[in-house]
Nucleic acid binder design. Structure first.
Lengths: 255, 255
DNA sequence: TCACATTTGTCCGTATGTATC
DNA sequence: AGATACATACGGACAAATGTG
């Protein structure tokens, strides 16, 4: 494929803040700048790149939103090289969902299918450390449940740990993104203690099957688990929709 | 799950350009602003939000990078509401790949597994329009090949069309993101006419199997196709690596 | 073709808030 | 508490791009 990215670029001449951002990005790609390194202050950067501070500010904004740097205010602050790209991807997925680009049913369906694949690879590739982390996770969750506390965080983490165990980072990104949306959704509608207990029980059974390399049993359990979650989500969605149906519509444009 | 997003927010008080960006985002989510609508000029916005123009500019930068608006310079230009979130997600995936966060093998593996699922759903859900577009795609590709022209664009489009036919938008996002990386990679190393011809032949066979609802044959063909692509990519990667191994390392920091 | 108006892009100076020492 | 360093934000100005008459 011809490199459209580069061939078609000059249609709109790059803005200088983009030039600045790209050259800093290149330094990160090339390893000259590494995570933890601090960039000079805005004024310094403006001098070195021979541009105004506004240009530098917009370049930093671009890098910040692309997950390359974080910025701290105050003395000794400034821009620090970080890698929060994955977090940014999740943010955008969340936006896409909020834009109504992805209905909840498709989200759950995709999650089920992708996690089934993940489970397959996890059974194949999980090492001792992965199994230890998963076991620790369900133990912590069970302990909370016994104290009548919902183990929501642990229950989410279980899926992340599973994705990690698959040893494929694309799966980790995708699973985390989808779960960020699910998590955001559930945080709005709320799951109760009973559901949380149920989820933990499923997770314990799934982990046991993984350890015994019982592939079919693990997948069956997982499918049942996800369909259960789907149904609960579905009813919550319908409930929320019917509640919102008659709440007056808002008016007014830009303050 | 407690809503960390909102609970932990005030750790770092929101900056005003973020406030501005969020309130415009809300207007888009609520449908008050729709795709195609144009925002007032920066100066107008500054007046209406009662902030400086610099603040507005950084807010617009945020919206632009989040895929909510595009910006044109010059008379009659300005910010227009668009939806390019998916394109932004692909960009970030590309960055993640360039950061070395995802080796090419994991990428190809994930693509194979996810596209297998996609294929499954496509056979189940593809309607007449989907099949027409796919047929048109392979016809165009075959025509090019006969003229000894590589059908690279068509060959990429085939996978996008397949994802669309699955009727699940998450699959579309994921497939397009992964293919953006593959495409970028292939554009650097280059596939020749022979490979392109081979790919088209595979696509024709796969489409035929889809039309006949021969699920197993379609999956088998697809797997063979992807493994073929994987091997070709793999050898190209090794070739490029060995070439780069002795190219001098660059020096110098910030111009 | 040529001005003209509009709008973004960029720069500078200055003031304020905030975190560190 | 005070000094320092830095991002944040404001206002004014000019340059560059782009569509319009």
């Amino acid at each position: 494929m011809p490199d459209f990215e580069h061939i078609f670029r000059p249609i709109r001449g790059r803005r200088s803040f983009e030039e600045v951002a790209v050259s800093i990005k290149e330094l990160v790609f090339d390893g000259v700048l590494q995570v933890g390194d601090r960039l000079p202050s805005e004024i310094q950067l403006a001098k070195q790149f021979n541009v105004g501070r506004q240009t530098i500010r917009e370049a930093l904004r671009l890098l910040e939103l692309s997950g390359f740097i974080t910025i701290q205010r105050g003395g000794g602050g400034g821009a620090t090289i970080k890698n929060t790209i994955l977090s940014r991807i999740s943010d955008l997925f969340l936006d896409a969902f909020r834009m109504g680009m992805v209905p909840i049913e498709e989200l759950t369906q995709a999650r089920l299918e992708i996690e089934k694949v993940v489970l397959h690879y996890a059974i194949q590739n999980a090492d001792g450390e992965d199994l230890r982390l998963l076991q620790e996770n369900v133990d912590r969750a069970r302990k909370k449940i016994k104290k009548n506390i919902r183990a929501t965080e642990e229950n989410f983490e279980f899926h992340t740990l599973l994705a990690r165990a698959s040893k494929n980072r694309i799966f980790v990104i995708v699973v985390e993104s989808i779960m960020a949306i699910h998590g955001n959704y559930i945080s709005r509608v709320g799951f109760d203690l009973e559901v949380s207990r149920n989820v933990v029980t499923f997770h314990e059974a799934i982990l046991k099957a993984i350890k015994r390399k019982q592939r079919k049993r693990a997948v069956d359990l997982f499918t049942e688990h996800m369909l259960d979650v789907r149904d609960r989500l579905q009813s919550l969605v319908e409930q929320e929709n019917s509640e919102r149906r008659f709440s007056g519509d808002r008016a007014g444009i830009l303050p």
